[in-house]
Write a protein that binds this DNA or RNA. Structure first.
Lengths: 144, 144
DNA sequence: GTCCGTGCAAAGGTTTTGCAACCAA
DNA sequence: TTGGTTGCAAAACCTTTGCACGGAC
């Protein structure tokens, strides 16, 4: 697992520690792509049943803080996490059926540049989650 | 208040009713711009103290359903709502200091067109919420 | 009169926190 | 040894739901 290289240093540089639980969370994310904390906990617990859900939350916070993991919001209820290195594409979630499409984040770089020009804000388009309707659901609008 | 014109019809067309509470929620959103359900309830309760928070949630659901209000997510904890008619610009939230910039949503139309071309998904860029760092916070990165 | 909407209170689901034991450095 | 990390359980938090009453149409 090459990804683990550097992992310890990144954490230590912020006074955080490398632990088995945090590695398992990272491995689960590599497996799952996008996942909620509960998904991740389920995956982690297949290897280490004693890992607590709150540990997963804390591990995710730590990993987001050091920049290895990004957080998104799929819906009102549950947060969604994914590896930053997996985020070379932006995601489009269908509001009708929850299907997900992926588009190269390069497509958004022009927008990011324009926003920076206009507002001075640096936008990170690698972690962009857009909402829309997939081809199938476009034919059956929300208020039907 | 011109906005209220048509409000009743829009609701009735879906078998919903025009009520004082729903008008107050709409007025609160017009006042506040972006707001969480709790913000809205607070604003509404200045005029009508008996309006319950759960009524605000239900009113927001109804208004989202008829297309007058849009829902976003500012952070993990609380949902954010705003008037659709107020959504002719996309929002950029600073992850450092929570400052918000607004950019014409026309800037994103090229991206939306490209995504549709690539994936078939219709993306609604009027309600886009981006995350980034404002000019001031860019100088003090998250892990400092 | 009918049926939707409301207030209240209770439940639901997600996330956070306090604390003692544990472990990485 | 030191101080961050974990598991457990309880709490906090946001949101939804059941029910009887009230109001829109």
């Amino acid at each position: 697992m090459q990804r683990a290289r550097g992992f310890g240093e990144v954490l230590r540089a912020r006074g955080l520690r490398r632990t088995a639980q945090r590695e398992l969370v990272l491995a689960a994310l590599a497996d799952l792509g996008h996942a909620t904390p509960e998904d991740i906990a389920g995956r982690v617990q297949r290897q280490a049943p004693d890992v607590n859900l709150s540990t997963v939350y804390r591990a995710l916070d730590a990993l987001v803080e050091v920049g290895l993991v990004a957080r998104g919001h799929l819906d009102r209820a549950a947060a969604s996490y994914h590896l930053v290195e997996h985020a070379d594409h932006l995601h489009v979630l269908c509001e009708g059926c929850a299907a997900m499409a992926e588009v190269s984040s390069a497509e958004a770089s022009a927008l990011a540049a324009r926003i920076e020009e206009l507002s001075g804000f640096a936008v990170d388009v690698r972690h962009l989650l857009l909402r829309g309707r997939c081809p199938a659901c476009r034919e059956s609008p929300p208020g039907s």
